[in-house]
């Protein structure tokens, strides 16, 4: 058995995460500037759908190359259940972070600092409706990333679902989580997706939430699905 070289797979993770952050975090900047302040619901819907499309395209184009994790929490979750080699976790995460930072850097070039910084380059933050509480935002990110990883396990890893649906299925789960959870914790689900905008905006408020929450949620979902529904069929 042979597969794409680690270098090619890292390039795929970099490009996939770039796509996600360029379109996803970029949609926060665009829609907040155009629809946002008059109609926040329309803006939220547009942002969620843009993320869904970005994820679907990334999965359909890069899924077979690198696995298209484009998210350190997904890489860690798969490594914990021994479906991804431990020695490739750090290279994958490095590639994902690099893609995210490059995407946010492109936002600086396109929007200029004035427009992009108005929404801190689309960084995720604990929302006003939870009193900007970092711990509650973390809890929310745990539950939501559990749902994302649950979908990845059920739709793709289990092999029991129609494989052609992975891109849209997982993309739309993220869309729904953004519609529901955007005002609560920003719906990151992905440390890389928050890291890129944080680097460019310098906004590190509650940054830990977007590492700890997604990784815990992804690991719990992966472990439960793997050991209860995949390996224990009796």
């Amino acid at each position: 058995m042979s597969e794409y070289s680690l270098g090619k797979r890292m390039l795929a993770e970099l490009i996939g995460t770039y796509l996600l952050v360029f379109l996803g975090a970029g949609s926060v900047i665009t829609f907040a500037s155009t629809l946002g302040f008059e109609s926040p619901s329309a803006s939220l819907f547009a942002i969620g759908f843009t993320f869904a499309v970005a994820i679907a395209v990334a999965i359909y184009t890069l899924g077979h190359v690198s696995g298209c994790h484009i998210n350190p929490a997904v890489t860690v979750g798969l490594a914990v259940i021994k479906r991804f080699p431990l020695n490739e976790v750090v290279p994958y995460i490095a590639a994902q972070l690099a893609g995210a930072v490059l995407a946010s850097a492109t936002h600086l070039a396109i929007y200029g600092v004035g427009v992009a910084q108005k929404v801190s380059f689309g960084v995720t933050l604990p929302g006003a409706i939870i009193g900007n509480s970092a711990p509650i935002a973390c809890l929310n990110e745990i539950v939501m990333t559990f749902m994302l990883m649950w979908a990845i396990m059920g739709i793709a890893v289990s092999g029991k679902s129609a494989p052609g649906w992975a891109g849209w299925g997982i993309g739309l789960i993220v869309g729904a989580l953004i519609w529901w959870g955007g005002p609560i914790s920003g719906t990151s689900l992905n440390p890389a997706r928050t890291f890129g905008p944080a680097i460019m905006s310098g906004v590190w408020t509650a940054h830990w939430v977007y590492w700890v929450g997604p990784i815990i949620g992804a690991v719990i979902a992966a472990v439960i699905y793997e050991y209860i529904f995949i390996r224990e069929k009796s």
Partner: peptide, 14 residues
């Protein structure tokens, strides 16, 4: 023949 795919890199049979 390549096997597997998302969320795993597909592998070419030896």
């Amino acid at each position: 023949v390549w096997e597997g795919g998302y969320p795993f890199p597909s592998k070419k049979l030896s």
